[in-house]
Design a protein around this nucleic acid. Sequence first.
DNA 1: AACACTATTGACCAAGTGGGTCAATAGGAT
DNA 2: ATCCTATTGACCCACTTGGTCAATAGTGTT
Lengths: 207, 207
Amino acid sequence: MFAKFLSLDKEKQDRIINAAMKEFAQKGYDKASTNEMVKEAGISKGLLFHYFQNKKQLYFFLYDHMTQLLVEQIEEKVDKEERDLFIRVRQMALVKLEIFQMYPELFNFAKSIFMETSAEVIHEVGQRGKELLESYFKDFKGDIDFSKFKKGIDVHKAFNIIAWTLEGFGFQQQKKVQSLSIENLDIEEALKEMDEYLDMLRNAFYE
Amino acid sequence: MFAKFLSLDKEKQDRIINAAMKEFAQKGYDKASTNEMVKEAGISKGLLFHYFQNKKQLYFFLYDHMTQLLVEQIEEKVDKEERDLFIRVRQMALVKLEIFQMYPELFNFAKSIFMETSAEVIHEVGQRGKELLESYFKDFKGDIDFSKFKKGIDVHKAFNIIAWTLEGFGFQQQKKVQSLSIENLDIEEALKEMDEYLDMLRNAFYE
DNA sequence: AACACTATTGACCAAGTGGGTCAATAGGAT
DNA sequence: ATCCTATTGACCCACTTGGTCAATAGTGTT
């Protein structure tokens, strides 16, 4: 169904994907403008509608395509046998970083889907989202080794603190990239800093 | 200049303020629709433009009015002599909670201002924002007692972890309020939970 | 050169929405 | 009755929307 689009050279594909995700993420389905997308992607209006029948089809193409990418990457790069929470969390962060470098708008797009209120798409979004996200989180909770935690620590709360810290750190880095122009963010440096945060939390929560 | 508006009964004022902040926060200045605002507030289009000359004036009224409220409340309820980081942070959280109960959209509105890109308002926003936010954060960093921290702890990072945890927790509670209908959130319960998070972090970082 | 075939453009369309206006009405006070 | 203000919502025109389509550019084959 998207054979024409998928046979484009990858660079152009990605330009279109990123432009569309950015617009949908910022404005929501209804207010997102296909005009803005084509301007940002540097293609003509006609071309976008040559590849995708209409706005809705484009939206769900992005949804499915990006979901697939996410699942693939997690499957490939996260070791499901690893039982240490911090190592698992770190692996997830690496996956996120890698994807972010290719599709900087993907996570904003994903977040925006949760907040979507448009009557046009909300039903179908609801349907597709359920299964996937559930299986994804069940996988993750899988079998973490909680015996390493100090006695008396509420592991659920500890997990939240770790997640929120990573989220906050990620957001901070994202803003840094946006302000300091293009990809001259020192990734090594950022990872080192992230590890320092994780070390602090490991010392705080592990025996 | 806004005498007419300010002499309205407070309930109606707040309905209008909340509706406008919500719309601006969700869509950004340009795409925010005054039609949506009046629909949400339950007033007529004409009335809104009876109180405010135009959209821009409304926007900056909200900006100034909410800034003032925030500063007042912090001035009143945060003890500047208190040198313990956790106590100070908790006081700030209480201020935030109180404001949130009256203006649930205020913090979303504030966040949206930072991301505003509209040519119409961006310059003036930039100008007003600077002074205020700077003085606000200088005040806060004021003179916290860092001697209570464990040796070897990076206090800057510790502060970030605390801030991100509070942010994450706050966001979680906000979502809970939105989904579980109106104000039947148990505030006592929420505060207790927040204190448990703060206790965990105090144990982690203090000697 | 001539032809075929696809990729790509952008002017164009009808429908809808935007901010803002204003004559008309409702309500209350005197 | 009269005056004054608060409030309404139909209306205006400019602009944007998703989507179309005839025309053009580009590429390869003969």
